[in-house]
Write a protein that binds this DNA or RNA. Structure first.
Lengths: 244, 244
DNA sequence: CTCCAGGAGGGGACCGAGTGCCGCCCCGCC
DNA sequence: GGCGGGGCGGCACTCGGTCCCCTCCTGGAG
């Protein structure tokens, strides 16, 4: 995609000079990773192919694994900012779902790159672990956002953690099947279905905050004691709602 | 099941011969980790304190991080076996919840050790990443179990992944707060509440095997169409129960 | 024009994790 | 007593990652 890696030793009027060494390193790395495998490629190989010094590699990427996920750091910052700029009134779960769509787009915007990366992460345990920690940071960001908004609910932190995990799992499910199909189909559509399933499971407000529900159907078997029936009804109605 | 490795430098009538080199390495490692920090401790330091060779360390642990989670490999095997030996009729979600209790017990059975480890994983990024991959393997085991049992349902794989993630998140939530409180309180009781929340959220969860439940509560919104209410009641009653 | 400051990059030394190989020694077995 | 195998130690090597110092390029001030 970039016109020419434009090596470091190469001087002369260069292009808008925007795709600097960083992109050249990513390209060189993926070329070698796909050609001879991740573990068979040393950082030395990458930098010699890119025509730069070994030291420079670690100026742009925190580790060898980091070059495989070059853009997640920025996206995480964007997601954090996106979540922090949300009004008080709106549904926090909806906001998190919107953030998930943002993350998914990071993959769907570059299908070939994402599929290539998937081939690597699927087979290299070290890359899987690194990806896990990346995803974990998204999840903790989501959970933090939900924790703030659900703090007044009973078990707010629990709900926040569980919902965040469920949303991320839905995203991962859609993403994985999209990647396995080599980028065929519309992942953005599929994630709507998946998120709808999650939101349906947790009601709309992140759990049994069921003020807006009007009908309660109780099915009780004969062997259930009455106190248990009552407790289930109470928990279905949600806390503080018993006397409405 | 090897007969007796018996300590290397130590001879003479020893104890039930249970604590071989492996345990000595774990103990030495944690002593140093807590005393001077994880990154400030080299494998060399550990093996000299334990009085063994450096090469032996990597015979017992796959990496320096591995010594911090010495027992998870076995527990994962136990969990896998536990799940594989489950009858066809029973609720797969309940089975997974039981497996989660098993995992939690791995922590609660050794409170001081778990709390010490928590202090490390909380502060050392490398250990966090390692723990993530450990937890991920549990989650994938759970998800695989659920995928098999929910294969006939629509979106079975999605449900399986989401439920597994939710269950693990509930476990983690309980575990974290228990660890932060330095092992005070009954985590096993707390995890019941958390799992109940998850199972409630997923209602039939993907598995309306509700033959053994006594009370079913369905809450419906006014705007929900009647056919949906009927379907909820039917699914609450479980399959083959409509005409009893 | 010169000088200086600062930042980007290169290079080399260094540390430590992880691996392969070999040799030892202590078993039990033949 | 000889022998083979497994557990263990020691050594050397690779490679990821860091530190420190050098060069070069640029640009602004005098």
């Amino acid at each position: 995609m970039p016109p020419r890696p434009v090596g470091a030793t190469f001087r002369g009027m260069s292009f808008p000079s925007k795709p600097p060494m960083r992109d050249a390193l990513v390209e060189a790395a993926f070329r070698l990773f796909l050609e001879r495998g991740y573990e068979q490629t040393t950082v030395e190989d990458i930098v010699t192919l890119a025509g730069v010094g070994r030291r420079s590699f670690f100026r742009y990427f925190p580790s060898k694994e980091g070059v495989v996920f070059p853009d997640h750091e920025r996206r995480l910052a964007e997601v954090t900012e996106f979540l922090s700029g949300s009004g008080r009134g709106e549904d926090p779960v909806a906001r998190v779902c919107e953030a998930v769509r943002l993350v998914l787009r990071l993959y769907t915007d570059n299908p070939t790159f994402s599929v290539q990366r998937y081939r690597l992460t699927k087979t290299v345990p070290g890359l899987r672990a690194y990806e896990l920690s990346v995803v974990w940071r998204y999840e903790r960001t989501f959970a933090g956002h939900l924790r703030e908004r659900l703090a007044d609910r009973p078990d707010g932190a629990l709900r926040a953690d569980v919902i965040a995990a469920a949303v991320v799992a839905a995203h991962n499910n859609v993403l994985r099947s999209w990647l396995r199909s080599e980028g065929e189909g519309d992942a953005q559509v599929a994630v709507e279905r998946a998120l709808a399933y999650v939101r349906e499971a947790f009601g709309d407000g992140g759990g049994p905050d069921r003020q807006d529900e009007d009908v309660v159907v109780v099915v009780s078997r004969r062997r259930a004691p009455m106190w248990q029936v009552v407790r289930e009804i109470e928990s279905a109605l949600g806390p503080g709602e018993e006397d409405r």
